[in-house]
């Protein structure tokens, strides 16, 4: 079920996450599909959560927007949820 499907949305998500955090090896992205919407469940090292969220949630908002744009270019709808393991 959760096998990663290669997609621009996913690749872009992983690219920016791993560049933004201090512990890129701890970045995990699990993909689920629910009623036609792809949900990327992201988990990062607990110390990196602040970096991924950003001041006032600005970074995570930018990540969500970008992933949504990349997905819509592929004719898909996508959401991003961020947490720790």
């Amino acid at each position: 079920m959760n096998e990663p499907i290669p997609s621009a949305a996913r690749e872009l998500l992983v690219l920016f996450l791993t560049r933004i955090v201090d512990h890129p090896d701890d970045v995990r992205v699990v993909e689920q599909e629910r009623s036609g919407v792809v949900i990327f469940r992201v988990s990062v090292h607990p110390r990196d959560i602040g970096k991924v969220v950003g001041r006032g949630g600005r970074v995570v908002k930018a990540i969500r927007n970008l992933v949504r744009v990349a997905a819509s270019c592929e004719g898909r709808r996508a959401m991003v949820e961020v947490g720790t393991p």
């Binding site: 920016f16 933004i20 955090v21 950003g54 970074v59 930018a62 927007n65 970008l66 270019c73």
Partner: peptide, 24 residues
């Protein structure tokens, strides 16, 4: 065009993420 987005929103998001990566 897709990197600009409506009213430049995608451009602003990309700029923010590149800056977040640089901040490290």
């Amino acid at each position: 065009g897709a990197l600009i987005g409506r009213r430049g929103v995608v451009l602003d998001d990309l700029q923010r993420l590149i800056n977040a990566a640089l901040a490290k």
